[in-house]
Amino acid sequence: MDHQIYILVIEDELEVMDALVKDLEEFEQKFPVESANNAEEAEQVVQGIANSGDEVGLILCDHVLPGKNGVDFLISMESNQLFTDSRKVLVTGQAGLEDTIEAINKAHLDHYIAKPWKKEGFQKVVVDQLTSFVIKKGYNPLEFMSVLNSIRLAEALRGSQLTDH
């Protein structure tokens, strides 16, 4: 890989952010984690990532945030062509049905994680989403097999006309 694929976490409660980042630690050797406490900060972070030629593979976003809420942030990410492919996940205990429907329809929400989350289920979602991202982007699956879903990556590899040389 000639560039980084970031995981972006947006959460305003610092203790909760701590716990989220801790559960993402295992991915950090392949996917550096960036964090933001509100949507405005996240927009700056995302811009910085884009400016250095890197990508955001996965956005994990709380809904109730000071200022712009999580769903609105995800919608703005969806409409930015740099981040349309970024996988978008809502991590919240507070989004109502309407917000969630809006997120699914307008931000193409890929997954919803309800708080409180469990590490195993949380990490499975992260693995699945990042795997989808890597496959969609057509990156070399071999680089990610040891961290992500190796079966799905092998399946992608099978369809990609690999050859001997």
């Binding site: 092998a154 099978r158 006309q161």
Partner: peptide
């Protein structure tokens, strides 16, 4: 088939077993 394509396909068979 190519050795590589065969390996990729067989990986989808053995990885669930390995897991």
């Amino acid at each position: 088939m190519s050795n590589t394509a065969t390996t990729a396909m067989m990986m989808t068979v053995i990885l669930p077993i390995v897991a």
